[in-house]
């Protein structure tokens, strides 16, 4: 999968990913878990700088990240 991502798919994946978030888990491991999901479901590749609790722990910043990577 490359180029622009299909907006409906992105919205669906982000919504479902949010439902699976475990607030009690180690935030860094949750970030890794979210990164696995995004890379697999959307076909994007993240950098180590992306795989942080700050970036992947917040739905809005995840959406921004996917927007950037999806157009890469």
């Amino acid at each position: 999968m490359s180029g622009d991502l299909e907006p409906g798919l992105v919205a669906q994946v982000l919504r479902e990913a949010e439902e699976l978030r475990d607030p009690g888990a180690d935030p860094d491991l949750e970030a890794v878990k979210t990164a696995i999901l995004l890379e697999d479901a959307l076909g994007i590749v993240l950098t180590d700088d992306d795989i942080t609790a700050d970036v992947l722990g917040d739905p809005d910043s995840v959406a921004d990240l996917v927007e950037r990577r999806g157009h890469a």
Binding site: L29, V32, I36, E39, D40, D48, I51
Partner: peptide
């Protein structure tokens, strides 16, 4: 397998290696 695929995209990444803990 999902973890290994994720890790194999950058085997040197310490962050990706933590996926095994899941």
């Amino acid at each position: 397998a999902r973890v290994r695929m994720f890790w194999a995209r950058d085997p040197e990444s310490a962050k990706r290696s933590r996926a095994a803990e899941l």
